[in-house]
């Protein structure tokens, strides 16, 4: 009887621990879902960026498309990678 009660108590403890940890998992995944940018927030990544002006002009000629060029008068600023 004592053994059964001990087993039951340990089992309940294990369930409690797993449930408690699972709720932590759920809570973290919920925060992840809340913080992950939505598609509308990522619209910058819908623009057809070329990694360089040279590549943009090469593609423009092949695809008969115009180029939208951002010129930054500075020692550094790369909009393609988001580091500006």
């Amino acid at each position: 009887m004592k053994k059964s009660l001990t087993f039951l108590a340990l089992s309940m403890l294990a369930i409690t621990v797993i449930r408690a940890q699972t709720s932590e998992v759920e809570s973290t995944l919920k925060r992840y879902a809340e913080l992950r940018p939505r598609e509308k927030d990522l619209s910058m990544y819908r623009i057809d960026w070329a990694p360089s002006l040279k590549e943009a002009q090469s593609r423009a000629l092949k695809e008969n498309r115009p180029v939208f060029l951002v010129i930054i008068h500075a020692k550094y600023g790369n909009l393609f990678s988001g580091h500006c």
């Binding site: 057809d48 002006l53 115009p66 939208f68 060029l69």
Partner: peptide, 26 residues
């Protein structure tokens, strides 16, 4: 804005007036 930019291929360039590779457009 993204809709207006659909026809374009976008690129960025940075540098100074004395850059050796200064593109003609810049």
């Amino acid at each position: 804005m993204v809709r207006l930019l659909r026809p374009f291929i976008a690129a960025s360039w940075y540098g100074h007036r004395n850059a050796p590779d200064l593109p003609n457009a810049v």
